[in-house]
Structure formats: structure tokens, C-alpha cells
Amino acid sequence: MKKLFTVLLAGVMVLSLAACGKTAESTNTFTMGIDPEYPPFSSLGDDGKYTGFDVEVCQAVCDKLGWEMKIFEVNWDEKLVQLDSNECDCVWSGMTILDSMKEAGYVISAPYYDNTQVLLVKSDSGIATSADLAGKDVAVQLGTSGEGLLNGDLSDMAATFNKVITCDSFLKCFTELDGGAVDAVFVDLPVAVSYAQEHDGFTVLEERFGDEQYGIAFRSGDEALCKQVEDAVKELVADGTYKKIAEKYPDIINNLIFLQ
């Protein structure tokens, strides 16, 4: 009896493997590329485990598809190169969709999040609008959409600043602000909100900049994989799992496109 059960189980596994057909080698692992310093989407928790909205959704997707999920920490400003070199199967980490990515041939999922950039300042700095930052220093994370905006659409505003400092992580941006080396951090709305909630003495300015969306990036040619993930997410939305996960992240829940 026991033996029969084992045989059956093996058969089921083989079938599910065949069904998945994720890649030519048909391995059943799915490696998610994340920036571990990007809460609440993806971060390394106090217990040493990865957590965050994107990580949880990805886990749910993998559970649904019977994949084993792995996590790869990408170097944010080299994320697409690392994707190309097969170090991960996707970049899924609060990633802003850029036209240049599509032009370069990457397969980008349907957007799932509307993002907005804001300025985070010290509450006692007396800075109320971006105009107050004329002649002051502003930090932005290298490789984020905020940096792209300051160099592109918002370069006129950036020109009024004394200088724009690019840091290689949000932690450093915030440390620069906290330590008095810069006067504001130009950052994604949810990141700013969660930081201001956890730390006293910081204010998110009212102004909103940019209108960008988050998506998942796959290698060019991986349309089928992208579709598989998108469909799985749709099922999660339909069965309420998606909402359950989102409710753990109140800072971002209002911007999630699938819940609107």
C-alpha cells in the first residue's frame, strides 16, 4: 500500500513537472531577482528571511504552479545584466517599467502598481515645497526611477538644487538625510511613507512627481513564462489570496492596480 502511494506520488510529480514547462530544461525552480533593501516590496527581515509584498506574491505564485522559489539578490543598477546572465528568472522587486527596457527586448508583465515619487525631508527643516529646496542638496538612489526623473523630465527642478547625490542604497540616502549631509531624499512614495512612519522627525512633502508603474521583467523570449506568472497572479486575485497579502502592507495597498 505504502509502495503504491509512493509510485502515485512520483507520477504526480512527473506530471506537474511536465505541465510547468517553464524552461527548456524544465527545472521546477523559479529564481526571483530582488533588491533586498526595498521594503515594503522586498527586503531582508529581522529573522534573516526575505519578506515583502512582491516576495509573498511570488511565493504564492510558485506554490500555485508547483515551483520551488529561490531568491537572488540583484545589484540594482545591474539588474538587467544579471537577468540576462541567467542569475535570476525575473526581476520582481518594485521595479519601475521603463520604455528603454521594452525597447531593449525585455518581456515586461502587465503593471501591478502605480508609483509616485515624493520628497522626504526633516520635519524641522522648514522645507514645505520643492521650491524651498533651491540651492540645497538632494539624495536619490542610483538606478531608481527617481534618479531617472531628476535627469529627465524633472531636470529643470533638479537644476535649482545645489547638487543631486546618488547613493547606492536607500539606507544610505536616508542616512545622508538623517546625518545632515543632504536636505531631502527623492524617493518612491511607499518607501517614504513607511520610513516616515517608522522614524520620528521626517515629513513626506505633499507634491507628487512622475507617474510610473511597477512590473516584472523577464528575459526576451520568455513570453510564455511571463504569461504563466500573470495568469497565476490573476487566479490569486480571483481567489482573494492577493488581497490577503496586500492587507499586510497598508502603505501600498491603495496603489495596487489589480485591487482597484
Binding site: L98, A104, L142, G148, T166
Partner: peptide
């Protein structure tokens, strides 16, 4: 260089 690389992909 990194900034340019990033913004220009």
C-alpha cells in the same frame, strides 16, 4: 559612469 549606464541601459 554607473549613473549613465543605468539611465541609458
Amino acid at each position: 559612469g554607473k549613473q549613465i549606464a543605468n539611465s541609458q541601459t
